[in-house]
Simulated scan of single mutants.
Amino acid sequence: MGTPEFACGILQALTQLPFVELVGVVSQPDKKVGRQQKLQMTPVHALAEQLGLPVMQPQKIRTDYAEVLDLHPELIVTCAYGQMVPEAVLNAPQHGCINVHASLLPKYRGGSPIHTAIIQGELESGVTIMQMVKKMDAGDMLAVRKVAIDEADTTEMLHDKLQAAGADLLKECLLDYLEGRITPIAQDETQVSFAWNITKEQEQIDFSKTGRQIYNQIRGLISWPVGYGVIAGQKMKFWGVRYREDKTEQPSGTILGFDGMGMLVAAGGAMIVITELQMEGKKRVSAKDFYNGKGKQLIGCRFEPVSSTK
């Protein structure tokens, strides 16, 4: 049971285990995208079709789960499915349900653990495989794999690291779990924190924060949903960023100029360098190309405070 690209790594891992017979895949309903509202398969749905696996996409798994139970699964593996799985499903398999979650539980339960780890400036993240219970991401832990977060990592980069780590960890521990060689470990409820889904408000970069916080917010939103600032009445999305220790007395959010690396912006007393950007209604461009166009006109302008825009 899974929906986004991250869960595809787990589905692929299951196909590589000789003792696993995949009898079905459950994913969120496909959605219409773009101006033409074309129906687009979820990444897991598309992969399952390639693999020739039957796919179920209930609108509400909470009530519409009979088709799942009819398969009589011995084990259900979930990863970023996106709906709360009802107890009738959790209790049905002989070996229960296990979940692959992209954080070091009990830290960052919820829907945006990868984004949140970057935004919070964490130096490490990881993957936890746990037994599923009715409460979100609260089950006993079966296996953990730590992954370092590098200084320049974006959410996209960390996503790929964790996807690979999760697939490897599942392949290493699944047989031991099925044969009873793993002792589940309860999560420490006093250490619980949550990573709620990213809101529209969080997409606007808050230049009132420290330089590091601004840098982390930008890279934590690359490459989805992509953070932005508002300058000269237009949105500018930030697709690439670097941090620079250079000090500046200019107000945070001021475009200081351009150099060989990109567009220099004052950020909480320090600087960030925007290497790739996208103006509202335009294509993504390098900072160099932007300078040769409209960019030089914006030197000295300042990104608007978060409170002044919707």
Rank of each mutant, 00 (worst) to 15 (best):
E245K: 12
N292E: 15
K282D: 12
M141Q: 13
V25Y: 00
K134M: 12
A48Y: 02
L75I: 00
V44G: 00
L47M: 03
D206L: 04
M1K: 02
K294F: 15
F290E: 03
K60H: 15
G281C: 05
G24S: 01
V100Q: 01
F6S: 00
K135Q: 15
K135P: 10
M279A: 12
A266D: 03
E74K: 02
P86R: 08
S112Q: 07
A46I: 02
T210W: 02
D137N: 08
E249V: 12
I255G: 07
P4F: 05
A232M: 13
L53D: 00
H72G: 10
M279F: 14
N197W: 15
L221S: 08
Q217H: 11
Q36L: 15
I129N: 00
G180P: 11
G257R: 05
G139K: 06
T248A: 08
K200H: 10
G211S: 04
M84F: 12
A48G: 09
L69G: 06
G300Y: 01
G269E: 07
A7W: 00
E280S: 06
V26C: 03
V26A: 08
H159L: 14
F258M: 08
V273Y: 06
G126K: 08
K288G: 12
G2H: 00
G253K: 06
K161A: 07
M279S: 13
R62F: 14
A232C: 14
G262R: 06
S223R: 14
R302Y: 09
E203Q: 15
G126T: 05
A232K: 10
F194H: 13
P29M: 04
M56G: 08
Q59P: 14
Q50P: 14
K237Q: 15
G300W: 03
L11P: 01
A46P: 08
A195V: 06
R244V: 13
V26Y: 03
D206N: 06
P251I: 01
L69C: 08
L256I: 07
E189C: 10
M136S: 11
